[in-house]
Design a protein around this nucleic acid. Structure first.
Lengths: 343, 343
DNA sequence: ACGTTTACTGTAAACGTTTACTGTAAGCGT
DNA sequence: ACGCTTACAGTAAACGTTTACAGTAAACGT
């Protein structure tokens, strides 16, 4: 709204009716005679009138907008989740305000600011400190946690991480007999990764082995490359690598390929997310598929219900994931399967 | 703001002062005796009062927020631009509302909606139809175009595309003598790509040759993979490939490597953007570096000036780019240079 | 002692909507 | 002709701020 020039009053004066009538025409409610409606609509068109969000929001006491705060990392995963969220919001005639923290610490103020522009917000992953989330709760901002560990009395939507990562790690350990297996990712960087690391450890315990080394890096392709250089600098390559997500795995794949290391003959590899590129590299990446889009849409649904006050007992929705076996783990093309559903 | 319970009135009543005084304390302007200030601040803390955006925005007639609409594609380029934009906005104490169109057509309504929540907006690339932009202009929404061809009377920020793409193409054509050279990307998909394709064609004309084939695909890694399968299906590989961006080049790189095609011995390759992964693949990617972050920050600066009405003649800012020669074009490590600045 | 400045605080009018309530005239059944 | 319903339209009071203006008391200079 550039200048916000025209108001109901001007439309009313021009048409010779009261502002109440104009308001009724604009919103299509109440009773207005066809000819009056017609005249008002003409005046609206001529003057280019658009109702001010200010006035409307003030009296309606709501913004008709949802917020989502996410780490702001590039990559198809985040993009997909947000699309799912938006799609659901749009059908409920709500706008979506996106805020990417870029993993910066000083973003608390900005989050609070966003809270004053929306009717409720979704908080994705470990983007915000628990104190910050608590502040939001104290201010009675309706929130739902997305891909984050639940907090008391807050609805949560996430995917099953531990069991599926345990399964895929067990696949490497027992089906293929690999040893040692490294984990690349930062378990303290996101709740999802925390759980995946836990699954990785659980698999090793289950077969009575010590978990392999943890290479603690970020979430992007470049981090995967960096991890490999770290590993090589430190000594030998492991027999297999479990990556916290596909982006890292893509970086690892590129780095290993660049150095002539053969996957999976020398080093086997798995990812997480099943992004489009996963099936396009050679060998195709064994990974875990999560319902990314549904994650977003479920979150939006819950948030909308929360705002309406329809949520009695805040649920902790855990969506199922699926281990996808391709070739990077060492399976042959024929053996590859899209089966094992976790949770 | 969940319930937006407390108002100035309650704080005022509790403290025994008028709402004007409360307002003065909150905003830190005007004269208030230290002890009154103290009492008011205590009441504010106790009641957890936070001023309502509604009321404030209504009387101040501004949102204190900037909007940015972008394609919503995954990848570090967009992420960087937005970070630059946000950084600048934050220093001007403005919030940023992000809207990703996801290249969907039906987004006009949502853009208009966003326009009613911000004081001005940046429009990135070919995300919006010209009609839609014109609607915004007609509604006197302050806008600035980002990585898009200028429109009359609208400030624009973009980077130099044509000349640098011509330069890097000429490098392949003359320094290396490659022929034929293909172009992978969609010239109608974004204004940047339009200009890059133009530079590609210009280079060929300049040496009296016909431009090689255009493989029209999207902007992501998967599109690069797909392009290679298309090319192979159609017949021979070209001697070199110019990609519209680094993401595509990464996909092409992965696809060629997977098929055992040697880069640059059999097929040389260049990208655009100089994303972090560009230098990390083997051979390192020759590309064009653009000041991504500055693109975002300049845009925000211009937008802020535009909103304040400080912009007399809307400028068309074109930021310089730089050809980065690494090894994927066929240069040896020694020959690699970070020199040739375009524009 | 008196006018003038100074420091502080309050009153009330915006800002642009929505909406409960009231008013008016026409239509209708008897 | 009379009362009752119905369809339409207007009045005015919110909603939660900011801010121009006015008011009051103390301090100060002469």
């Amino acid at each position: 709204m550039g200048k916000q020039n025209t108001t109901v009053h001007e439309v009313a004066k021009r048409t010779g009716v009261s502002i109440a009538t104009v308001s009724r025409v604009v919103r299509g409610v109440g009773q207005v005679s066809p000819e009056t409606r017609q005249r008002v609509q003409e005046a609206i068109a001529e003057l280019g009138y658009r109702p001010s969000r200010f006035g409307r929001a003030l009296v309606e006491r709501r913004h008709s907008a949802l917020g989502i705060v996410f780490p702001g990392l590039a990559g198809p995963y985040y993009s997909e989740v947000i699309q799912g969220f938006e799609a659901e919001a749009v059908t409920a005639r709500q706008s979506v305000l996106i805020f990417g923290t870029h993993l910066l610490e000083q973003s608390e103020d900005q989050v609070l600011d966003m809270a004053s522009r929306v009717d409720g917000m979704a908080i994705m992953g470990g983007t915000l400190s628990n104190e910050c989330v608590q502040t939001l709760i104290d201010q009675e901002v309706p929130i739902v946690l997305l891909a984050r560990h639940p907090m008391p009395n807050v609805p949560t939507v996430r995917v099953e991480n531990t069991q599926s990562t345990r399964d895929i790690t067990l696949h490497l350990l027992t089906t293929h007999g690999y040893d040692p297996i490294y984990f690349i990712g930062n378990p303290t960087g996101s709740p999802d990764t925390t759980d995946r690391w836990e699954g990785f450890v659980a698999a090793h315990r289950q077969v009575g082995r010590e978990p392999g080394a943890l290479i603690r890096v970020g979430f992007q392709q470049a981090d995967g490359v960096w991890a490999i250089s770290q590993i090589l600098e430190a000594g030998e390559l492991p027999r297999a690598i479990v990556c916290a997500n596909d982006e890292i795995a893509l970086g690892v794949h590129a780095a290993l390929t660049a150095r002539g290391v053969r996957i999976p003959e020398q080093v086997a590899l798995t990812g997480w997310d099943d992004i489009p590129m996963a099936r396009l590299i050679a060998p195709a990446l064994s990974t875990v598929c999560q319902p990314t889009r549904e994650l977003g849409s479920q979150t939006a649904k819950l948030l909308l219900a929360r705002i309406k006050g329809e949520l009695d007992e805040p649920p902790d929705v855990v969506l199922p994931t699926e281990v996808i076996i391709r070739q990077s783990c060492g399976c042959t093309h024929e053996a590859a399967t899209n089966g094992q559903r976790s949770f």
